[in-house]
Amino acid sequence: MTWMVWTTPTAIFFSSIAAMLAGMTLWEILSPTIERKGFLPISTTRGDRLFISLLSAAFIHLGVIGFTTLSIWIALALSAVWLLVLMRWG
């Protein structure tokens, strides 16, 4: 594993992604998702909304890192709020 040059932040990052995927699987088993239409222009399933929020979170982080002097934690907080909004009303 040393060749993968792990760091604590990236390990936490990948563990949370893995935990999200496992959680989504469990949620799907307990109550299968129903495709529906929210404020997004397309009808989505739960997994679609998670994918959209993770992808937009990546771009929120890039925007904050590249073009502002704000802390990365603000980007993380924004992404978390966006994820919740999207999962509930998207």
Binding site: M4, V5, T7, P9, T10, F14, L62, I65, G66
Partner: peptide
């Protein structure tokens, strides 16, 4: 995943690496 790990560090050799955070992205 390895690429992600490399992107937050300055890897000079097997035992010499430094955490750089978001510097490379900036």
């Amino acid at each position: 995943m390895t690429v992600v790990n490399y992107s937050v560090q300055d890897v000079l050799g097997p035992n010499a690496r430094f955490f750089t955070g978001t510097e490379w992205f900036h």
